Simulated scan of single mutants.
Amino acid sequence: MPSMKKASYVLIGIIIGALATYFFCPRLPENYNDKIVKPKGLITPAEAKELNYNWTKTRKKAVDSAAGKVDDRSSSWSLSDIENYLAYAKNQSDSLGYDMTGIRVYLGVYPGNAPNGKADYTTMFIVPTGKKSVSEASIMDIMLPPPTSDLPVNPLNDGSGSGDGYPQ
């Protein structure tokens, strides 16, 4: 039969082992179990090419003729610009008392006096959408989908435009 002194050494050893395991073994990150969710509305690259081809076939001539030149037909932003903008827009929406629920992409045309050779070219810009935050629940919120509208947050513009179509 082990003595009380030997049992206390075993107990201290177990405690030290548990603490060492806790502090020195790697832990999984908090978002380890987060799953990547496939968004609604995805299309294949072939479908995107067809949509672009249809735009070219039915709109390009009219747009270029109205602009008097080959107009921009796309805008692109870096991934970091998009991520930063979404975080900025969400923060601004929250601070203004809105729930940001999405984004909307608009077409626009730069004015004739725009700098950097952008005058009269088409542009696209992103606007956050959502609704006014409501502090109290209401039966109407359950019955009707919440209306969304453009939020009073600065839109994102200044993507790099291109007159080229979708890559073939």
Score class of each variant (00 low, 15 high):
residue 104 R to S: 11
residue 70 V to S: 12
residue 38 K to N: 08
residue 134 V to N: 12
residue 90 K to W: 00
residue 90 K to C: 00
residue 166 Y to W: 15
residue 11 L to C: 09
residue 20 A to P: 04
residue 161 G to H: 02
residue 120 D to N: 15
residue 19 L to R: 03
residue 5 K to E: 14
residue 104 R to N: 13
residue 131 K to T: 01
residue 143 M to S: 08
residue 34 D to N: 15
residue 14 I to D: 01
residue 147 P to H: 00
residue 124 M to F: 15
residue 134 V to G: 04
residue 64 D to I: 05
residue 137 A to Y: 15
residue 1 M to K: 05
residue 68 G to D: 06
residue 46 A to G: 04
residue 30 E to C: 00
residue 75 S to T: 06
residue 73 R to V: 09
residue 142 I to V: 14
residue 33 N to C: 05
residue 5 K to N: 06
residue 47 E to S: 10
residue 68 G to T: 10
residue 88 Y to D: 10
residue 96 L to K: 15
residue 6 K to T: 14
residue 105 V to R: 11
residue 22 Y to C: 01
residue 23 F to G: 03
residue 40 K to G: 04
residue 5 K to D: 12
residue 90 K to L: 04
residue 135 S to A: 13
residue 113 N to L: 04
residue 65 S to R: 12
residue 126 I to R: 02
residue 1 M to Y: 02
residue 123 T to R: 09
residue 88 Y to E: 10
residue 110 Y to E: 13
residue 107 L to F: 01
residue 29 P to S: 07
residue 8 S to M: 11
residue 17 G to D: 03
residue 130 G to S: 01
residue 132 K to C: 02
residue 155 P to F: 11
residue 68 G to R: 12
residue 149 S to A: 12
residue 52 N to T: 10
residue 141 D to C: 02
residue 99 D to N: 14
residue 163 G to N: 13
residue 2 P to M: 06
residue 43 I to H: 02
residue 97 G to V: 11
residue 68 G to H: 12
residue 130 G to I: 00
residue 87 A to R: 10
residue 35 K to G: 07
residue 147 P to E: 08
residue 85 Y to L: 03
residue 128 P to E: 02
residue 165 G to R: 01
residue 161 G to W: 01
residue 83 E to F: 08
residue 145 P to H: 06
residue 162 S to Y: 09
residue 63 V to G: 00
residue 121 Y to R: 14
residue 1 M to G: 09
residue 107 L to T: 15
residue 27 R to W: 08
residue 41 G to T: 07
residue 148 T to Q: 05
residue 163 G to R: 01
residue 78 S to M: 10
residue 124 M to N: 04
residue 160 S to A: 14
residue 71 D to E: 15
residue 6 K to P: 00
residue 107 L to C: 08
residue 46 A to M: 09
